[in-house]
Amino acid sequence: MANDAGVRRSSMREVARAAGVSVSTVANVLSRPAIVAPETRRRVEQAIRHMGYVRHGPARQLRGLPSPIVGSVILDLANPFFAELNRGIEDRLAEAGCLVLACSTDLQPAKERQVLDLLEEQAVRGVIIAPIGPDPAVLLEMSRRGTPVVLVDRPRDGLDLCAVGVDDVLGGRLAAEHLLSLGHRRIVYLGGTFETGTVIRRREGVRQAMRAAGLDPDDLLIDLRLPIHPPPLVEAAAAGVQQILAERPLPTAVLCLNDTAALGVLHGLGVAGVKVPQDISVVGYDNLAFAAGLAPALTTVNQPKYQLGRAAADLLLDEARPDHAHREIRFRPSLVIRASTAPPRRA
């Protein structure tokens, strides 16, 4: 068979003849290598390399075999949290012989819908998505039409889909309880003018912690929402420091929606001559790789980013099983205390 450039492709039948096996054995080596005896698999793989055999994707799908391509639809690949999450997806699916097509939606609903339509048109094996909004209608319809969908970084909430997430309410509560235990009472929660469910749930965790301590979050919690999307997030958070410093009485702590925003806050406070944690404590969320190397090192809430991605990929692969049942995997966050938090100077 020749491709569009006129170069002849080796066929699966020719590979089988060269390896001295059946065509079905070659197909198994390509699609289900674990069921083929090691010596036979080695002989077939050697023949594939020697003959330069390349699988033909459209023909594969015409034979009813699933596509090896999986769509990973996330908010922002430039965000280190999603980059590490996507690495977990990619590594796990590579083990299963799949290729990940990673797409950023940049918190734009129209772009998310366009990406999903294109992936479905390409008959991908499935989609792993960190959805922008709460409306799951498009995703449910996609699943009903035969394209498996797995939610990541979002709870299942009773949907007929698989989901992997972290208990964000607990994460917000852990961060707030730490600040309250140090004596902080007037706290800024730094969120955004456009927020995903993860950020909203973290805020609720903060409010829960304050109420449990006998405090009224409506009086003491400063809910500051910045235009932090689309990126750059660091610059927007740094600029937002002026709003924090304009509050009276001055807050003694800032709890940021993620570590990237906390990085911007630390920079903005430094430019303003405000010392951390002596004047204001700062807490992040995610425990990104750079958090421990900041000056001061950042107190933050740890999420198992890589494990989130691998778990989502596992659920997607499990969709192919005839006995598959939709389920949810939820991880617990943990608090990592570093040098950016301390008791406030004022009572």
Rank of each mutant, 00 (worst) to 15 (best):
M1T: 13
N28H: 13
P38I: 00
V44S: 02
G52I: 02
L65S: 08
V70Y: 00
V70M: 02
V73E: 07
A78I: 00
G97L: 03
C103Q: 13
S104A: 12
T105W: 04
V115P: 03
L118W: 07
P134L: 15
E141G: 07
G146K: 10
G146D: 08
V149H: 03
V150C: 09
V152I: 15
D160W: 03
L161C: 10
E177N: 10
L182K: 00
G183V: 03
I187H: 05
Y189L: 09
R201Y: 00
G205F: 01
V206C: 11
R207L: 09
A209H: 00
D216W: 00
D218I: 10
L220Q: 12
L224C: 05
P227G: 01
P231A: 05
P231M: 04
L233W: 14
I244V: 15
A246K: 10
A246C: 03
T252Q: 10
A253M: 02
T260C: 11
A261L: 03
P277T: 06
V282Q: 06
Y285S: 07
A291T: 11
A297K: 04
A297L: 07
D314V: 07
L316I: 10
L317A: 06
E319H: 11
E328H: 07
R332N: 12
P333E: 11
S334G: 14
S334M: 13
